[in-house]
Amino acid sequence: MHKDNPYLPSLATIQGIEDLTSDVRLLRVTLPAGFSYLPGQCALLSILGVGESTISITSPPTQPEYMEFAIKRVGKVTEAIHEAEVGEQIGVRGPMGNHFPVEMMRGKNLLFVGGGIGLAPLRSMIKYAFDRRSEFGHIDVIYGARSPQDICFFKELTESWPQQPDTAVYLTVDRGDEAWSGHTGFVPAFLEEIAPSPQDCLAVTCGPPIMIKFVLQSLEKLGFSRDMIYTTLEMKMKCGLGKCGRCNIGDKYVCVDGPVFSFAELGELPNEF
């Protein structure tokens, strides 16, 4: 964050671009000086002349060389980010908001339940845990996408992550195709089928709002208490500083009090999101 003007972005150079799906692109950028973050935090990315958009940081802070963002093409700013090329500069402000409860997660088993682009913020924490593997217990990753073509981070999910010690990765798609031999079905039902133990386990979920709603019910059925389930909210933001008012829900601003909340905390908020 700029010392005297928190609205002024730092400049980062795009180092690498990878298409994760037909509409999700992974951007690797240089880490601006002094930018330090924890898993779950976001940044505001700018294409100057088009605008700014809040994107969660998908790389782990254990990676000191660069930062990564997985960006789904949904509006004019994300469209412009998709058009940017390697070597170009983009604006970065942040990090914004709180982070996953890393201290609380230490020593515990971790369950990650992701849907679609919702894997992006989880990936920062998953890779952080891999990089500091001895500090965490068993890791389960359950991930679903609409179709095999919509799976984000397919290579990591199928190749590198299952190779990690004491780690299991489960994939499902809403609808398969001829080539798909894996599980077909929605994430909440799949989660109940796998039935991870709530014992010493902290669950983190992110995905479409409807998925999160049913994942919460499934986790409660499995015996997870609401204070051991965390999620990260996606909400339109502009300033990222708790001033522009846009992300206000109840007594919270998502940009500074969130985006990470436990379900126990979300239960205290008015039911509008």
């Binding site: 605008g51 522009c244 008012g245 846009r246």
Partner: peptide, 20 residues
């Protein structure tokens, strides 16, 4: 009431301004 929006106003291709 202090809510505001932030947007960009391009001036041609070379530059522009960000305003609220």
């Amino acid at each position: 009431c202090h809510c505001f929006d932030i947007d960009d106003m391009p001036h041609g291709l070379e530059g522009g301004e960000r305003y609220r």
